[in-house]
């Protein structure tokens, strides 16, 4: 009999999917603004600008929810990997992704309400939620006040470093989204991860795995 665990409360799922929708809008509109082409625009510049601004503000507000929620509930601890044995845990995770999974092995780390992430996820999510997101949000908000940027920096307009940081961090998040979507398919079943993010229930607890987190 498969054990099921309710690990994704409704608020978390709503936050996740709203974030996902806004990030997709930001990526498409951001690409339209960066790679403008008067002949074949992805989204027309002025429309892309509105979408990007509104979605950007939305994501910023959601990030504030995330920060408050994480500090209030102590969930931030879930992102901190256990340093002892970190390398072994990462190696084990990589081995599972590139070998074990192909052999049909069960995942050796199964999410619980207390610890949802494996070591690889922890490192990735630290980069995403605590580095790339703040960078993309702060530089994005700076674009609302371009007059505050220095007039010149290294002979270029002072807005350039802000723009480049925004672009690179935004690109990093786009790559994360690709990886995140794909990793979502690598559970016991292809749709299992997505189903969990819709229903909140993780139903792969019948494998009796050995968790790496205490």
């Amino acid at each position: 009999m498969a054990e099921r665990a309710y690990i994704m409360p409704i608020a978390l799922r709503l936050w996740h999917w709203t974030n996902a929708l806004l990030m997709i809008l930001l990526i498409i509109s951001g690409a339209s603004l960066h790679f403008t082409d008067p002949v074949i625009p992805l989204i027309r510049f002025d429309i892309a600008r509105t979408i990007h601004n509104v979605s950007g503000i939305g994501v910023s507000v959601l990030y504030i929810f995330f920060a408050v929620w994480n500090s209030a509930t102590g969930s931030w601890r879930q992102y901190i990997p256990e340093l002892k044995g970190l390398k072994a845990n990462l190696d084990r995770q990589n081995y599972y992704v590139f070998v074990g999974q192909l052999k049909g092995d069960a995942p050796h780390v199964v999410p619980t309400p207390e610890q949802k992430f494996n070591a690889m996820q922890q490192l990735t999510y630290i980069g995403v939620m605590y580095i790339a997101m703040p960078v993309v949000i702060v530089t994005g908000l700076a674009f609302f006040y371009p007059e505050l940027a220095p007039a010149q920096l290294f002979g270029f307009d002072g807005l350039l470093p802000i723009a480049v940081l925004h672009y690179v961090a935004g690109f990093g998040l786009t790559m994360f989204l690709l990886g995140h979507l794909y990793m979502g398919t690598t559970g016991t079943t292809v749709a299992g991860g997505f189903r969990m993010m819709i229903t909140g229930w993780h139903d792969e607890h019948d494998e009796k795995p050995e968790n790496e987190q205490p």
């Binding site: 403008t36 510049f45 723009a163 690709l178």
Partner: peptide, 27 residues
Amino acid sequence: LNEAYVIGATRNVYLDLALGIFAAVVV
């Protein structure tokens, strides 16, 4: 770019290329 960062007009082709290659590798 000496005077103003103009979205869409002042891109860096090397950066675009590097990130494009990175994206292609990920895919």
